[in-house]
Nucleic acid binder design. Structure first.
Lengths: 367, 367
DNA sequence: TAGCCTTCCTAAACCGGTTCAGTTTTGGTC
DNA sequence: GACCAAAACTGAACCGGTTTAGGAAGGCTA
């Protein structure tokens, strides 16, 4: 049953740490280049090398040049570990994700967000320490141990919740942070926000303009700030359009929940003619459920999502959705966090509001 | 346009590093608990505390107890940074992902894999350092700098390629690693594998049994080992079933490419009656394209995917696919890497072969 | 009682940077 | 030439552990 494909030459038990030697000409120990060696070469004390490196005042211009020259010749890079010990910093940032693995897997937000973060951190020589934990309790413990171990100098706070306990915790721990979105209580941390209200309102307005009167909402978890905010935006938009209150079903943002909610909505006596989903994965699941129930989209049911994930363009019909920009968000958050740590303060950043992208999943009702 | 929602009380510019003080009773400096303090309390030298902590021989049993007791009373945890400096280890593991952001975003493999990795690392006090880079060249540089900075003690090697340059690089750098899958050339590193051949072959066998004779393959990138292996398995399965060679289109695993490939296949004079996709996102895109072209699935076209991502169950018709188990993979890889670093060697692990999951997207042809 | 191991422990070096008190050099002013 | 301040630089302490050489105490053999 186990078909061997290209099994490499390897005697059992030979797997192991590769030998340290790399070049053939390694006669003795490859002499480690430390700040001492550089100092000697440049004919100065190691303290001065340190000064020159971190370009601080008090080093004569020509001496500085000589030192940097020596460092370059020797190929010296200061030891991050030694530097960490004396500066009490780790030159790394942290991201703790507390999510049900299923939800995490179907949500493309984080991969993109992280790609954005990395694009800023890498050139700065900062690393990203990632933790994925199963629940909120473990999450708090994780922050504590990240700080206790001095693993990170700052963190990204995503998936804000009402009265988020992480904010006082981080304050207590003295850990700088950036919040993705604005917390609903006083926070000392800079916030990077994308206003998602206009996008949701535009979705509803778009549906209303098409003639829909019974619009339902498959919402995300109301414990999450953006979940309840999108919910509020939905209700406000209905009022604004002069429509009656719509049905709302709260979910955990998972694909399975989106599917279930859709079934419940569509198997009623008077089903809605349009459904606004709080994220794309649920909308796609809803699309599947509609198919299964024989409800044609968009002719008998209009559907909108949120996020504009890659899939949207390629399901059928292509999904009308609201375009967020997680990569941009990641970049902004990383820049802000770096600024905060460097200057001791950073301004909030408001990214351009997410915009409605109209595709084929919405049409006038009973078309 | 910018609707303010719960803007917290905050004077501009007040954002900044939160004050370090946490408890009200912080009279003077909160006295840092170092190994010195513990040593003093236990009435021994700090060297001995170190010995006791790392339970090494040469400490009298009662003394050891006294030391550990003192440490507990003082709430002492050894400083990771200091320990890093003297042991030359970082107690962190690395994962470098080189992927087009689009592909990365639609592929739920990594989130799940990482969740699995974390479930093993966290209890061991190890952190995961994640890098997402745009291309293979940057990837190599990233490994170099991770080592140069001593950020990680070992790495996970995913998305193996033919004659993968990362393997000799890691050997040169002396960095322990675990490969996800077996490289096609000698490798000193332990491999954690899931044999994907049986799954692909089962897919084809299943389709052949249903009566399909024109089966096409939308393959992944052939530079990736698992891409070309699945391709080979596909061809082999056709031969085994006594079917003629099938059409194969190579892609980059992206949703867009899956959609395009499907259009090309279906708009031919004699289109296939079944398509085997190298991953689920492409299969789902293929499903969308089939709908768009008015080709009914599964009646006029059968479709199979690979990975069994969450979506599969919720699209319509639900997708027949091959179930991989990225979380289990993550766990196995993390365990193996830890073993390797502790013992200097670790055995290969063969995880149970991925299995075919039959759902609604496959049926006899021209039903 | 000397000689020799063990066992338990200490003191100090070490990892490789940063930082600061203080010394030497430089240059300007009267 | 004396005086002084600023600039340039050194030496040593420091971050907080690990590791090693070696010392003291105790037990065993001859």
């Amino acid at each position: 049953m186990n078909i061997p494909v290209n099994i490499p030459v390897k005697t059992p038990g030979s797997t192991g740490k590769p030998a340290a030697e790399s070049t053939a000409k390694s006669a003795a120990h490859p002499p480690k280049v430390t700040i001492e060696v550089v100092a000697k070469r440049a004919g100065v004390s190691k303290g001065l090398v340190s000064f020159a490196l971190n370009n601080r005042p008090g080093v004569a211009p020509e001496t500085r040049v000589r030192i940097l020259q020596a460092a370059k010749e020797l190929g010296w890079k200061p030891s991050l570990r030694a530097r960490s010990l004396s500066t009490q910093r780790s030159y790394a940032l942290g991201l703790v994700i507390a999510r049900n693995p299923d939800v995490l897997a179907s949500d493309p937000f984080f991969p993109s967000f992280i790609a954005g973060v990395e694009s800023i951190l890498a050139p700065e020589g900062r690393a990203l320490v990632l933790s994925v934990v199963p629940d909120a309790e473990t999450e708090l413990k994780t922050y504590r141990s990240l700080v206790a171990d001095g693993r990170v100098d700052g963190v990204f706070l995503t998936d804000l919740r009402h009265g988020d306990p992480r904010i006082p915790l981080l304050v207590e721990l003295g850990l700088p942070a950036v919040t993705l979105g604005r917390p609903d209580e006083p926070s000392p941390f800079p916030a990077v926000t994308v206003d998602d209200t206009p996008g949701v309102m535009a979705s509803v307005a778009h549906l209303a303009a098409l003639g829909h009167r019974r619009i339902a909402h498959v919402a995300g978890s109301s414990t999450l700030l953006h979940g309840s905010r999108r919910c509020a935006a939905f209700a406000a938009a209905l009022r604004e359009a002069g429509l009656p209150e719509g049905q709302t079903i709260e979910t955990d943002f998972s694909v399975a929940a989106g599917s279930d909610a859709t079934r419940r909505l569509l198997t009623q006596d008077t089903p809605p003619t349009a459904i606004v989903y709080a994220n794309d994965p649920m909308a796609i699941a809803g699309l599947g459920m509609a198919h299964e129930l024989g409800v044609r989209v968009p002719h008998e049911l209009s559907i909108t999502g949120y996020d504009d994930i890659d899939f949207c363009r390629y399901v059928y019909p292509p999904l009308t959705t609201v375009s967020a920009a997680p990569m941009v968000w990641g970049r902004a958050a990383a820049s802000t966090l770096l600024t905060l740590m460097e200057n001791g303060s950073a301004d909030d950043v408001d990214l351009p509001a997410a915009r409605l992208v109209i595709r084929g999943s919405t049409a006038p009702p009973r078309g």
